[in-house]
Each structure stands twice: as C-alpha cells, then as structure tokens.
C-alpha cells in the first residue's frame, strides 16, 4: 500500500526566536567574512600531494615479471594487454618469445586490480594521476614507457598541499614539503 500523504504541522516560531535565528545566521556570515576558511585548491599553482599507496599511474618492473598474464586477465576495463617480446634465455642462451603487459590509459579505470593480483609485485602505483596526453595514441604505452615513471609536470610547477580534517575548523588546506614530511 502506498504511503498516505500526511499533513505536516510546523509550529510557527515567535517573532523573537525568528529575529534571533536571523541574527545568528548573519553573525556566522560576518565571522566567516573576517576569518575566511577557504579551502579552494588553486590547481595548477597548487596540487594535492597524495600519499604512497594511492592508485595512480602504473609502472612495470620488467625483471620481476613472470609473464603469468594474471594482470591482463583480471583487468575489468581490458586496459592491460600482453605483448610478445623476443628474449634470450639466460640459462640456455636460446632465443624465445616472452609476454609482457602494456597498458592503455584510455581504458584504464585505476582500480588497481592488476597491481593487487600480480604474484611477484612486478607492478606498482605512483601516487599521482593528473597527467595530460596530447593524443589518444600517446596514452597507449609500449613496453619501454611502461617501465618508466611518467613525468609529473604539475609537481614541477606547483606547490604541494594536503587536505586534513581539523576537529574545530573542518576541512583545512595545509602546505607540505615536496619530499616527504609536512609543514604548517
């Protein structure tokens, strides 16, 4: 049975409590006007310095990879692909074909499944994600570029900041050092 409409009665407030409410609202406004707690990120001039463990761009450590293809299989966006590469076997010295993953950042959703599933920890995240490619082709890595950490241009030009939740002030933006530690 659908819920019946109920007539709601809101008790009308007296004049004085209304005045009080208005004055309180204005007082809060004045307080913020003289002590603004801005938390806007002025983006290219400042950037959020993310912590280690953030699921950003992905880098392959080729030596550790055992070509198991787990990463390509688990990828929900079909962004990971295996490419065949001719290698020389270090023990026997014979030529053989080995498969390595490459990633297509047009498709990747940065879910991190590939990093989690890798049995030898051959993949890892870098803690940044704001990188712009000029063309879609550029966003498809080859084996070479997949092994390098992508260049983080924002960090070169901007100042690193971080947002913390203060008990009194709420969301607060603080400056941090480029490398590691925090500074007020």
């Amino acid at each position: 049975m659908p819920p019946r409409p109920v007539e709601k009665h809101v008790h009308p407030r007296g004049i004085f409590s209304r005045f009080k409410g208005n004055l309180e609202a204005i007082a809060i406004g004045v307080k913020y006007f003289f002590d603004p707690k801005r938390s806007t990120l002025i983006y290219p001039k400042e950037y959020i310095k993310l912590r280690e463990g953030y699921r950003g761009f992905i880098v392959l450590v080729k030596n550790k990879c055992i070509s198991c293809s787990s990463c390509a299989r688990i990828c929900p966006a079909a962004a990971m692909k295996m490419v065949k590469v001719p290698v020389t076997d270090p023990k026997t010295g014979k030529q053989r074909i080995k498969k390595f993953p490459v990633i297509n950042y047009n498709r990747c959703i940065f879910c991190g499944y590939c990093v989690d599933v890798c049995p030898t920890e051959a993949l890892y995240h870098v803690p940044y994600h704001d990188i712009v490619y000029e063309s879609m082709e550029e966003a498809v890595t080859d084996l070479e570029s997949f092994q390098k950490e992508p260049e983080y241009k924002t960090a070169k030009e901007g100042l690193p900041v971080r947002y913390i939740v203060d008990e009194v002030k709420g969301l607060v933006k603080i400056r941090v050092k480029k490398e590691g530690g925090e500074k007020k």
Binding site: G29, Y32, F33, P36, K37, R38, S39, T40, I42
Partner: peptide
C-alpha cells in the same frame, strides 16, 4: 567575492 569568502571559496580570481 563576499559570497565566495563566506562560503569558503575564492570567487573571481
């Protein structure tokens, strides 16, 4: 600017 200031934004910049 004022609305931005009070509402924790920056406004025209």
């Amino acid at each position: 600017k004022t609305a931005a200031r009070v509402q924790r934004r920056i406004g025209p910049y």
